[in-house]
Amino acid sequence: MFEMAKELFKQLFKKPFTNMFPAKHAPKSTVGFLKKVEEGKAKLNEPVPIPEGFRGKIAYDKEKCIGCKLCIKVCPANAFEYLEKERKVKYHLSRCTFCAQCVDVCPVNALVSTKEFLLSDYNKK
């Protein structure tokens, strides 16, 4: 009976489970907070570690690309645009769903999954 009450009382004296990323309480301005971190005035709590084989932001090596259009064919979100003149593709990060099907299909490994996942930005790249 009242198993939860016991558990709650125990948890009262334990460290919270929450990972305090990026700070304990939401900073008033995230940009301002990051600036402070860069200046060394504040400390950034580390995010939860990501495992091997994580499907993060996709890195596109334009040099390697041969313009075979396979990525365009398999991409479920139309994140690739074919550039007629250059015979290469353009990768739209904002449309990407990070399924990494294009990484699997690319014959020359021009597309690679990275571990990068902090992708929000003010700049529309």
Partner: peptide, 13 residues
């Protein structure tokens, strides 16, 4: 804060 701590959360300031 105490309620949050009991639920293993950090809680508000």
């Amino acid at each position: 804060i105490l309620a949050a701590r009991m639920q293993a959360r950090i809680g508000p300031p």
